[in-house]
Amino acid sequence: MCTEPESGMTRVFQLLGKRWTGLILAALMNGPGHFAQLRRAVPGISERMLSDRLTELAGLGLVRRTVEEGPPLRVSYELTDAGRAIRPALVELTNWAEEHLRVGEGARCPEEFRD
Rank of each mutant, 00 (worst) to 15 (best):
R11N: 05
S51D: 08
Q37Y: 01
R114G: 02
W96Q: 03
A107W: 10
R84G: 02
D115G: 07
A82V: 13
R64D: 04
L28R: 00
P32F: 13
P71F: 08
T55R: 14
S46E: 13
R48H: 14
P88Q: 09
G70I: 02
P71V: 05
A82Y: 12
G44F: 09
V63A: 07
G31D: 04
E92R: 10
G8Q: 06
P32W: 12
S76P: 01
A26E: 08
F113M: 05
E105T: 01
L90G: 02
G31K: 03
E4V: 13
L54D: 04
A41I: 04
G106L: 05
S46M: 12
R87I: 01
G70H: 10
H34W: 07
E98G: 06
G59L: 05
D81W: 03
V91C: 06
E111K: 08
G61S: 00
V67G: 05
L60I: 03
L38S: 04
V91I: 13
A85Y: 10
V42M: 04
G33C: 11
A26R: 13
R11Q: 12
D52E: 15
D52V: 10
A107H: 00
R40D: 15
V12Y: 06
S46A: 14
R53N: 01
V12S: 07
E78P: 02
A82G: 09
P72W: 04
V12M: 11
E112H: 12
S46T: 15
A26W: 00
E98C: 05
G17V: 14
Y77D: 03
K18S: 09
F13T: 14
L57N: 12
E112T: 04
T55W: 03
L62R: 01
L60M: 07
I24A: 10
V75P: 05
E69C: 13
S51Q: 09
V63F: 00
G61H: 01
S46F: 07
P72V: 10
A27G: 02
L57K: 09
G33F: 06
N95M: 13
L50S: 10
P71W: 09
L50N: 10
E6P: 11
A82D: 14
Y77T: 01
T21Y: 06
P43N: 04
F113C: 06
E6C: 11
P32Q: 14
L101A: 14
L38C: 05
G17W: 12
S46K: 14
T94P: 00
R84I: 04
P32K: 14
A107K: 08
M49S: 14
V63D: 00
K18D: 07
E98S: 05
R40V: 13
E105K: 02
I24F: 13
R64V: 08
E47Q: 11
A89C: 08
R102N: 07
A36Y: 12
R19S: 14
E92I: 08
G70M: 06
M9T: 15
T10F: 12
L15D: 03
